[in-house]
Nucleic acid binder design. Sequence first.
DNA 1: CGATTTGTACGTTCACATTTT
DNA 2: AAAAATGTGAACGTACAAATC
Lengths: 472, 472
Amino acid sequence: MPVNSFENYPMTWKPNRDQLTAPLYLSIANLLEYDIINGYLAPNTKLPPQRELADYLDINLSTVTRAFKIGELKGLIYAKTGKGTFVASNAGATITIVDNEAEKNYLDMGLIKPFDQFNPLVVETVKSIMSKGYIEKLLDYSHPLGSPYHKMAARQWLQKCNIDANIGNIAITSGAQNSVTLTLISLFHSGDKIAVDMYTYPNFIELASMLNIQLIPIRHDIFGMNPEELDAQCKANNIQGIYLTPSCHNPTAILMNMSRRQEIAKVISKNKLILIEDDIFSFLAPQNYLPITCLVPDQSIYISSVSKSLCSGIRVGFMFYPEKYASNIIRGIYNINVKTPALNAEIISELINTGMADKIVENKIAISKERNEIYKKYFKIENPNENPISFFRWLPLNQKFNANEFEKNALIQGIKLYHSNRFLVGHSEEKQFLRVSLSSMDDANELEEGLALLKNILFETTDPSNIDSLII
Amino acid sequence: MPVNSFENYPMTWKPNRDQLTAPLYLSIANLLEYDIINGYLAPNTKLPPQRELADYLDINLSTVTRAFKIGELKGLIYAKTGKGTFVASNAGATITIVDNEAEKNYLDMGLIKPFDQFNPLVVETVKSIMSKGYIEKLLDYSHPLGSPYHKMAARQWLQKCNIDANIGNIAITSGAQNSVTLTLISLFHSGDKIAVDMYTYPNFIELASMLNIQLIPIRHDIFGMNPEELDAQCKANNIQGIYLTPSCHNPTAILMNMSRRQEIAKVISKNKLILIEDDIFSFLAPQNYLPITCLVPDQSIYISSVSKSLCSGIRVGFMFYPEKYASNIIRGIYNINVKTPALNAEIISELINTGMADKIVENKIAISKERNEIYKKYFKIENPNENPISFFRWLPLNQKFNANEFEKNALIQGIKLYHSNRFLVGHSEEKQFLRVSLSSMDDANELEEGLALLKNILFETTDPSNIDSLII
DNA sequence: CGATTTGTACGTTCACATTTT
DNA sequence: AAAAATGTGAACGTACAAATC
């Protein structure tokens, strides 16, 4: 029996005692999920302390803990010792970003497309391959990790990323997201914890949630992830891994400089984390920057892909792993992919070997520079550590919005944008941002149109005293 | 303190008390894993009862239970209430089957290859596509589930499998194994249980183990999985799903007849299981056989692929799912695959639309018939319910072998074969078998050579009084 | 068929770490 | 700097169910 009556207490969540069925912990977890999904518990609501809830429901503290743990692994809530438990910012929302519209009647500044206008250059290469006589050899089950020839091309590609890889530690995969999936399944287990930037690529957030891997958000400063904070969270949390995209962090566009990379590497080393370095934007980083993988080579998985740099639809990526993880990763590839189609690997290899890859990359860098120049006509880039030739920009807002409403309203006005909440892991934040894609428009004019429209929307809705960060 | 001294008891496993560190349960699980992987605990060894071990180590029963659970989810041990806990038959062994040999100096009767000699027909189609003008449109991020055109082709393919699918409930995937991965990640959670045939495709076993999904083996009779046994296990175990390959079960080659399909469907329905129907061999089943999916359409995921029937290396599969699972599966595809390359889907669509697919399938059926005729010259097919045109055969052994040694010995003598233990889920079985692939040899002569060699090996090693099931 | 053996699953206890006040 | 609030995670106790004898 509860000692006190709580009927007069203001509890933010009062699950109905009578609805509880055995097993209690599951029953509570389900009620919680129901109330969050159906909007009875708004994002960022503080839930009652576990002890209070246990007392109210007349059950044991640990039973509540267990129920809350389920919610946390599903990404519905997040808990902070000493502080309390809160409904997650993105609870119940689908945040995955994907190109799924049949017809677009808006200006797209949401998706990060890889400048598909250079795909005709890929077509040339595809056609030249098809005239050759060996296609038949690309159609069977052999060489599940990639043929020696394809791995040689991969090696060449990785060398441009400043990775000097042994052929035996390379695998051809079906793109970066596929590589990340392979890594998470092969090297991590349900319930493991991975440190990520406070703002993280939503598809990674959702993937982790599907695999029951808990993400621990780490605060950043203008240089990227904060190493002290990372170290502190490792001590507090028994974290097994870390996911980083140092060349151009999605969504903040931060390019991590070498000294920060070294500091982070030290913490990774010290805490024996497995580093998942997603370096799909390596081609946008200065050529003398070393991947963090080079600083902690024996505990890093390096992930590269050609989806942003060359061609997205071919779905080919490269993975470089240390020997000690090889057997696990190979087992993962066998059981998850079987193999990546050799035809696709052949196309990419040919692009690399003929120098067409370099040409395409040059073109993409040039157009991205242009697009950034246009952006700077409308908005300031406040953080000098952001990658200046990023395919997208991180625009600070001077006011707090309801993220969903803001996105919807922008769409009504004709532009697709993503609000920073979509990228948030756990916490809600004071400061809000927009991720503005510069690469999804067909041409520069459309981008200008979109940016002008965006500026208008921000002027309209922004408190006039607060518009100083908007140029003009 | 333990009440009794166990020093004189015969315990099959005596972990060293002094090696235990906190947390106890993990420490025990690690010791157990170490002793199994390093061969101190042989497959099928009965471990001490949990209570006895707890008493011996002077810890609580539940702590042992917890440690054992970890071992069970890793596939290292299996437990039977009332009976005891046993080291798994395949504990510690890698059982995945994959084409990974650079050079083969043996006759391959292990891999199930899809008669790659018809790949030149695919090459024709590939070349004809490449001469067309729309390749560029196949190279971007759009239509992650497959373009409407590709889905129409998929629909046509599925119709030949007797599946009448709505376009909206089809997804193009990167092959059957990829579809299975998608299904497991999207619709199941860590710790869930899935019913499978006692003998199951090793890559599925390993995938489940990587995802922390527990497989519950169900006994079969000559018609395939036993429905009563399935029902009983559902009652006992809180099983969420079932994995079936009814057209030609791998490895037993059993073709499940319609009445058994109906019985199984009833049990699936009654216990609200999610059915994963892997029907990659549908083209080897009689045309009037309905997939089990048709009998329980609202809780079935139907998986088809062209890897066996058309071409393995292109990596294209089709998935058909009921509306209620659509959002989960689509989310899974977005986060795991991003998309399946449209170029590959285009090739397969063209094969389907031009009728080339039918031609290839006809050819493969014809050659598989031939190969089975050859097989029957050497060995009897005892179970009339086995698919008569299967790409592989399930050969009963008349003696018990050490599975590993048998496989090794056969390889020394020049043939690659897989012993039934490789396919076992949990239990060890009285009866032993070999899976004999008929499709991995380049020509019929090689197959004859291999079968003759196999027969020799079996004669040599078999007790002469037991050779009656071998013809001649 | 009933007693015994054995594994399962849930809820409970408690020491502890972190954060806030 | 100390006390209070709050979440964490390992280990324990117990009722129960299935299999065996």
